[in-house]
Design a protein around this nucleic acid. Structure first.
Length: 444
RNA sequence: GCUGUGGUGGUGUAGGGGUUAGCACGAGGGAUUGUGGUUCCCUCAGCCCGGGUUCAAUUCCCGGCCACGGCCCCA
């Protein structure tokens, strides 16, 4: 039998419903914060992603050539496509842009729980404005979204790449890249991100710097923790005569965040948060949940410079985040299971009013007008399509989750009525075969 | 890329070198030609794939594939 490709998933009725609900919950929050949904193609030019992330990404891409020999790839993420879209057709729009998106992305890598080759990302970007207030708006939206999903026990970690850059520069590392190489600061950021202390020491030595500078980094790490880290970092930076601009901006962001969103279950300020990627320039943040083990990051974002790649330097930096749709859902499912709940998101079990119509030994055509009319009124109507015997019809209706069954047999048809039975208590009434009468009886 | 565990009807499982491979749920039909969820009967449907050992492999061994974990990575 042909199986679904590795790392992909099918979503049955229940899961599909749950996914649509989650998307709706996220959309509601985005819309309330003034964001509009956009959509980009499933595949893009290969160049788009190598320009953003370097040629190294190709190994993880579903890259291919079309019949014209154009190098293309399934999209591995959505930020770059959205940036491309902005550059290509939204230059004249009023700024700042607040955009939201949701869709499948593809990466060729080992898949496991919370990590698939086809995965879904929900994200937002603010383009054309920057600073502590924008950062706060972006984090606040992330917090409000997670709050709205009902997710519990997550940790928000906030940092600022600028603080780290200032520290590294203050210690004497250059941000100028040598010919064909990487700027020492970038190398250090990457090594810090990996937690590779040995290589970091080697780097300092190679640059002819006193390894004692590493003590400051260590001290910053010690200072990290709750939001008090912001206060304890100040004297440290001052003592080394380092700039306080980035730190002050972060303080402003956190203070604004307090006013814009409910308090997250846990907030950590980590001034050593680094990103191995050069385009992150300012605030960075991420959200973790304990349920998912090694794949516990469910959201990540920050301030970044990417639009210069499209000739829009004046719009840099932007700020946004990507939310791991699948992981959030998984975490919610774990939490629901742990609490013995079957409903992961409220409302996923379907409508409370659901009518099964059974034409019993009469031509189905005699009920079709009614079926359409009741549907027009917004009620879910299932039509019995297999000509089942009467008893089986009830079993079928019950299996569907119908709240009522309307049987129309020869006797009823003669009288111009049908027999409506409420499955919850077995009560029955005869109703005229008009939408208004049926609706009245349903709501009775 | 490294590594651990596992694969028996659609689902969940029992078993085990020679078996009619058992059970439960499920699905379809009937008992029941105008009232369901109970009951009874019937039917459907399975040992992941390939190689090896053996008189004999679903069972043991090797490889592959798939699944579930732990690292590495993660734009």
């Amino acid at each position: 039998m042909v199986q679904r490709p590795r790392g992909t998933r099918d979503f049955g009725p229940l899961e599909s419903r749950r996914r649509r609900l989650l998307e709706q919950v996220l959309d509601n929050e985005a819309v309330r914060a003034g964001f509009d949904r956009v959509q980009t193609p499933l595949f893009e030019s290969l160049d788009l992603f190598t320009a953003k992330s370097g040629p190294g990404v190709i190994g993880q891409l579903y890259a291919f050539e079309d019949k014209g020999g154009r190098p293309l790839t399934l999209r591995p993420e959505l930020t770059a496509p959205v940036m491309r879209m902005i550059a290509e057709e939204m230059r004249a729009e009023a700024k700042p842009l607040r955009l939201a998106y949701h869709g499948a992305c593809f990466r060729y890598e080992e898949f496991k729980t919370g990590r698939y080759r086809e995965f879904y990302q929900y994200g937002i970007e603010v383009v054309g404005a920057s600073g502590p207030l924008v950062d706060a708006e972006v984090i606040a939206l992330a917090v409000r979204m997670l709050h709205a999903t009902g997710l519990k026990g997550w940790t928000l970690r906030i940092g600022h790449v600028g603080v780290l850059r200032d520290v590294l520069a203050g210690l004497g590392l250059s941000d100028v890249a040598p010919e064909g190489g990487e700027a020492p600061i970038s190398s250090a950021m990457r090594l810090l991100d990996k937690g590779d202390v040995n290589s970091l020491q080697a780097l300092f030595a190679a640059q002819g710097l006193d390894a004692a500078g590493l003590d400051l980094l260590h001290a910053l790490g010690e200072a990290s923790g709750g939001r008090e880290a912001l206060a304890s970092a100040r004297p440290l930076l001052k003592a080394h005569g380092l700039s306080l601009l980035a730190l002050d901006a972060l303080v402003e962001t956190v203070e604004a965040l307090d006013l814009l969103a409910p308090a997250p279950p846990a907030l950590e300020v980590d001034l050593r948060v680094a990103r191995g990627l050069d385009y992150y320039t300012g605030m960075v943040f991420e959200v973790h949940v304990p349920e998912l083990g090694g794949e516990g990051q469910v959201l990540g974002g920050g301030t970044y410079n990417l639009l210069h790649l499209f000739g829009l330097e004046d719009l840099d930096p932007s700020c946004g985040f990507g939310l791991g749709f699948d992981r959030v859902l998984l975490a919610l499912e774990h939490q629901a299971a742990a609490e013995g709940r079957t409903e992961v998101l409220p409302g996923e079990s379907g409508p409370s009013l659901r009518l099964a119509v059974v034409p019993f030994r009469v031509p189905a055509a005699s009920v079709l007008t009614l079926v359409a009319a009741v549907r027009n009124a917004g009620v879910v109507v299932d039509l019995e399509l297999r000509g089942r015997a009467i008893g089986k019809s009830f079993a079928w209706a019950d299996g569907l989750g119908a709240s009522h069954v309307l049987v129309v047999g020869p006797r009823d048809l003669e009288a111009g009525t049908g027999n409506l039975k409420r499955l919850s208590d077995g009560s029955q009434v005869d109703v005229a075969l008009t939408a208004s009468d049926v609706l009245a009886a349903l709501n009775n």
